[in-house]
Design a protein around this nucleic acid. Structure first.
Lengths: 148, 148
DNA sequence: CCTTTTCCTACTAATCCTATAGGTTTTATT
DNA sequence: AATAAAACCTATAGGATTAGTAGGAAAAGG
């Protein structure tokens, strides 16, 4: 029932990228440093995100990454599904295999399907843009707290 | 992001127990047979459920298990928390360790906390009694479909 | 007693997670 | 053209977790 580091790091990196790639593309190294994530490991995460067309890469020296579309058009669900696989609490194969059991079938209908639906509703309702706004508010308010 | 066999088997076994212990207590062996679960493995599951006071045991020959309280007083959340640990998608230690990271802190507030809340809302809103009713309806309707 | 059943603990094979390591290719800059 | 910076790719490995297996100890009914 846990989200792995791939999902957590990936989401953080996407927020970081959205915040920092507003002007220009961003090298993975700088994201890894800011977020305290191993460069090699983050590469694997970005590889998945790129193949899923959530980010684009510019190769070669002075290359880097940018969002493939606007932050408003990318949801947390889009990101997590790429990195965690589908977000249902029971995987489809297991469900299909045990569907012949009446007890399991009835639990699936009442419990698993409801949990899945509610998780998807949450993650599909939060855009990267929203997270960027939250982040900016947070850093802005800390600035005031410090200087006033 | 998956619920393990402990949670799935445990929930099935609890529904089975609720259905079959209405009259008398039930031997683990019979539940294991009906549900197609290894007896030894189900023992470990029941050990946890007993220690959490969700079921009571009668030791010795002709012994067995019964629900510790009415099916209406036991929720899916009660059962899953015993068998899966807490149902949050990020465990507390991880969250605390990375809380100093501003990006992570803002993701936690907007994403992880929301997912956790929605999962808990679902599982705490479904009682074992509800599942038993569903199960009975299901078997009843199959009976009609077959004979009419 | 003897059998049934709960209760307890140790072990293991397999899988998944979390990286690490090191190389290849592409491209801007000098 | 050479160099360096960066993306891109693949293999491997240690550790943790999962999903069970195995076998015996203790309790209680007949």
């Amino acid at each position: 029932m846990k989200i792995s580091t791939k999902g957590r790091y990936g989401l953080r990196a996407m927020v970081d990228l959205a915040v920092n790639s507003a002007v220009d593309h961003v090298a993975l190294k700088s994201i890894a440093e800011r977020q305290g994530i191993s460069e090699n490991y983050l590469e694997q995460v970005f590889s998945s995100l790129r193949k899923a067309s959530l980010i684009n890469s510019i190769k070669g020296a002075q290359g880097g990454y940018v969002l493939a579309k606007s932050a408003a058009g990318i949801t947390v669900g889009d990101i997590l599904r790429v990195l965690e696989g589908d977000l249902s609490v029971i995987d489809d194969k297991t469900a299909a295999g045990e569907q012949s059991n009446k007890t399991e079938a009835c639990i699936k209908g009442a419990v698993w399907d409801s949990i899945n639906a509610s998780i998807n509703e949450v993650v599909d309702g939060i855009t990267l843009e929203k997270l960027v706004e939250d982040y900016k508010k947070m850093t802005k308010s800390e600035y005031h707290m410090f200087y006033i």
